[in-house]
Design a protein around this nucleic acid. Structure first.
Lengths: 344, 344
DNA sequence: ATGAAAGCGCTAACAG
DNA sequence: CTGTTAGCGCTTTCAT
């Protein structure tokens, strides 16, 4: 018994046959028209399009792929809690649009692990997978690669196609920027076991050495969340402050800033990623930007290439990072201008 | 020509027929076993499972649904930039798991509008759509509802199934909390045209009136991002501060806090949503929590019910909000304790 | 430019 | 318990 008028005009959704009947042509023609392929006369094309619209027809992507053999679907696994992943996904959509491929999103959540996220995508018959900063072991990734092409983003892994930024170089940029401002006591709040953290740590160390600042080397255990940055900042507060901090990423840097600002500490802070949060005017965080648009284009292109041509072969594509100077870094010798004021 | 050894064992992915041949049984049996349906002997079941594993077989969900007629797929449209949406999606996954339905995610990005996000889902033959705070017009949503069941979350719309929290009540809770602390000059930074904003504005107004504080009523134009909150805070700073602020949502509240803390202003600030950011220890934001777990369960249940039983009928499910007292609100008459100190 | 027929991988309905 | 048959909605030959 219906509460109101039946909202669904027909019991089942209209199919290609329905459209063909409505337009008075064959299924083949409708198929051509719907895919915007050549081979139908303009008048037929118009009739078909009108019929489809009248019926509210939407092609069934699954039947389509079942028949055509390929899904033109790229699976993307990402951490829904990570703002930087969101930025990458945003650019992946844009990049995919240009190739004619669709994205199938599968999120990792506190309650849904990477394995589950990947399994879902596998069943959707994606032609390739793009994994953003995956935490699977190298062995698991290798095994997955025997099933279908896999492109890993934002993490260095052997035996798989990888698109990442030059993390070590990024920390060189950060340290160079800070030393250029006169800083010598520069701490690094690292990312622990997070993807890219080891490289950034390494970059920090070698940059410090290059500047002849070996003794100042100070690595504080951090992580990739604001929480981790805040904790690290409290440690610095307790154990003695440097004049500048290079944080593992922007979220971490924001946590640091939040704690330090409240403690009225004057420090230069630089983040990493240039994620959306860093750009907010009231945060205005100096950071090392990853070129997410370029990385996304490369990842999609590589995934498509592997899917269509050579599923074999693994390469690492490394994109250079870029320094973005905003308000959270300043001269080491500055007169007592607070971090807050500088950020204004 | 392959760079390395061919990583794909066979040219095409194994099918159910391959498994049947490998195990020496019929396709039907394999089908039963793969779906864990009763009707196959234990020994057969084992043989099939082994064969499937040997071949690395994964069922093709699209062929499966094409045949069985239903996809057991719930489409979810969300804004990938919104942390609160991410929280909802997280809980939707959990809720869906219990019903045996899968989620198909489709993100709205700066470059991909809601229409596009919905079209993608339609092609995937989702059985129902869950739209998180959609911006489509009522008419568009109504039209969509004639195609398939639609459940709208976090926005009140007529003519569609809706799951939302009681926004007006939420602001009553907020104002009650603040007046309980002795505040009388309480501003509201609103959400402009964002979903729910009108209700929260209304709730604020009536709560203020109820407390006999009509003259203090002060609504500042805001929005749903940190940026909006920061801008509103600057306005307050210029035009005279209240003693407390009820912000449209947590992100907005965080922007407010950020600006006010730097300006050394002592204000109580309360947010809305209780999103992940609010819970961070260094933010520690007092807020009005939406019960995302309950809302997600209700939304999924409603979507499934509509998909399976009665596609007709529209109801609004309203979940009560809850006050979560953390560190950003305190007595109006407190001795000069800064907001920063209270939040410690 | 158009149509008829076959079949993608799977499940449902039926038969044994 | 097991196998056979038909066909989901679409694309793809191959005719016309």
């Amino acid at each position: 018994m219906c509460d109101y008028a039946d909202p669904v005009p027909e019991d089942r959704r209209p199919t290609l046959s329905d459209v063909a009947a409505e337009a008075g042509v064959s299924k083949s023609l409708v198929s051509l028209v719907m895919r915007a392929e050549p081979g139908a006369s303009p008048s037929t094309r118009r009739r078909v399009l009108e019929a489809a619209d009248r019926l509210g027809y939407h092609p069934d992507s699954r039947a389509r792929l079942l028949r055509s053999g390929h899904s033109r679907l790229l699976g993307v696994v990402f951490g829904i809690q990570h703002t930087f992943h969101a930025d990458l996904v945003t650019d992946l959509y844009t990049a995919a649009r240009e190739t004619g491929y669709e994205l199938a999103l599968s999120a990792v959540t506190p309650d849904r692990d990477e394995k589950e996220a990947i399994t879902g995508l596998l069943q959707d018959r994606c032609e390739a997978l793009i994994l953003i900063a995956p935490q699977s072991t190298t062995a698991e990734l290798a095994r997955l690669t025997t099933r279908l092409p896999v492109v890993v983003m934002a993490r260095g892994v052997r035996g798989v196609d990888v698109v990442r930024n030059a993390d070590a170089d990024g920390l060189h940029l950060a340290v160079d920027h800070l030393t250029g401002l006169g800083h010598r006591r520069i701490a690094h709040i690292d990312g622990g076991r997070a993807p890219g953290a080891a490289d950034r740590r390494r970059g920090y160390r070698s940059a410090m050495q290059r500047h002849g600042l070996p003794l100042e080397t100070r690595i504080v255990p951090g992580g990739l969340t604001e929480e981790d940055g805040a904790a690290a900042a409290r440690i610095l507060l307790d154990e003695g402050l440097p004049t500048a901090v290079a944080a593992f990423n922007d979220r971490c840097a924001i946590g640091v800033l939040d704690v330090l600002t409240r403690a009225r500490a004057e420090l230069s802070v630089i983040g990493y990623d240039d994620d959306r949060l860093a750009r907010l005017s009231h945060i205005n965080l100096t950071t090392i930007a990853q070129d997410t648009a370029a990385m996304s284009r490369l990842a999609v292109a590589r995934a498509v290439e592997r899917a269509e041509h050579s599923p074999a072969g693994r390469r690492e594509l490394v994109v250079p990072p870029r320094l973005v100077i905003r308000g959270t870094t300043g001269p080491a010798s500055a007169s007592p201008v607070s971090a807050a004021a500088r950020r204004r």
